[in-house]
């Protein structure tokens, strides 16, 4: 396999090792969340949050005209993360009034509009002679093969943080996911559980979007959990199945893309979709 050869070759390792490490971090980051997303039907929350990244980039670049630090790579990341978290909370608040799909639609459209307008402001405001900001689309459609070692570290920190948070609160989170009002009657704080899940989803989606693009972020948030619910009858097994589907999708897609010189993200999505079809065919009815 070319992926293995490239990883062993000292000349190409510097490109393919971070990519592989990031890809494996995504396999730790997403699966447990994905199961809860499938149960609570929060798939489109991820969609809204990932598109909010446009708004974040626009804000970072336009504010960067005044505070140059914000327009640097990490500055943009920080602003995007903050804005996406705000968007996630906005969705969660709005959905209490008008329904989740309406809330996501509004936040998604407003974030993208704001992002493109502010990007234009930033581009127009760039002094002549200086390079214009990178195209806004590039920030959203990240490439696994373009990531650095630092990206891999951030992805792994997030993966461990999210995994640990879910593990520590697993009993209340499971009870709440199964039966909100029942869990409340036993003293579980429903609002806190929802907020926690929204924050975790936002963090996971923002990191995945930056590294692998919005399409892959959506696919990794939805497909493994949806497959797992067809295959497992208990929670630990569901998380194992979800992890396995993620692993097969990410590793399989990566291998195929390197082997045939294709884009990794679409290849991963298609392998995930294949895994989901198999789960539907051979699993029980959800």
């Amino acid at each position: 396999m070319k992926l293995v050869e490239y990883l062993l070759d000292s000349g190409t390792r510097s490109v393919f090792l971070p990519a592989t490490l990031v890809a494996l971090a995504l396999v730790v980051l997403m699966p447990a969340l994905s199961v809860f997303v499938a149960i609570k039907r929060m798939a489109f929350l991820g969609q809204g949050v990932s598109h909010a990244a446009f708004g974040g980039v626009g804000i970072a670049l336009s504010l960067g005209l005044v505070f140059p630090l914000l327009a640097t790579g990490w500055g943009v990341q920080a602003v995007v993360m903050a804005f996406c978290l705000a968007a996630a909370f906005g969705i969660s608040r709005l959905s209490r009034v008008g329904g989740t799909d309406t809330a996501i639609g509004i936040v998604l459209a407003v974030s993208m509009a704001l992002g493109f307008l502010l990007y234009r402001v930033a581009a127009n405001g760039t002094p002549p002679g200086e390079p214009p900001p990178p195209p806004i689309e590039a920030v959203l459609f990240g490439s696994v093969l373009a990531v650095t070692g630092a990206d891999a570290v951030v992805a792994w920190l997030a993966a461990v943080g999210i995994g640990l948070t879910i593990w520590l609160r697993r009993h209340s989170l499971s009870f709440w996911a199964f039966d909100e009002s029942g869990a409340e009657a036993f003293g579980v704080n429903s609002e806190a559980m929802r907020t926690m899940l929204v924050v975790l989803i936002a963090v996971a989606v923002v990191i995945t979007t930056r590294l692998a693009g919005v399409v892959l972020a959506t696919a990794l948030l939805i497909i493994p959990g949806a497959s797992a619910l067809r295959l497992a009858t208990r929670m630990p097994a569901a998380i194992m199945w979800s992890s396995l589907v993620s692993l097969i999708g990410v590793l399989g897609g990566l291998i195929i893309s390197v082997e045939f010189d294709l884009e990794p993200a679409p290849a991963i999505v298609l392998v995930l979709a294949l895994a989901y079809s198999l789960a539907r065919m051979f699993g029980h009815r959800a």
């Binding site: 199961v35 499938a38 149960i39 609570k40 009993h171 209340s172 499971s174 009870f175 996911a177 199964f178 039966d179 909100e180 009002s181 029942g182 869990a183 036993f186 003293g187 579980v188 797992a228 619910l229 497992a232 009858t233 208990r234 929670m235 097994a237 569901a238 959800a286």
Partner: peptide, 21 residues
Amino acid sequence: NSVETSYPATARDLIGMPLLL
């Protein structure tokens, strides 16, 4: 009807949920 029947749990798991808190 407040329970999510797609949740992967057995009846025994369900019964134990409050105790496990």
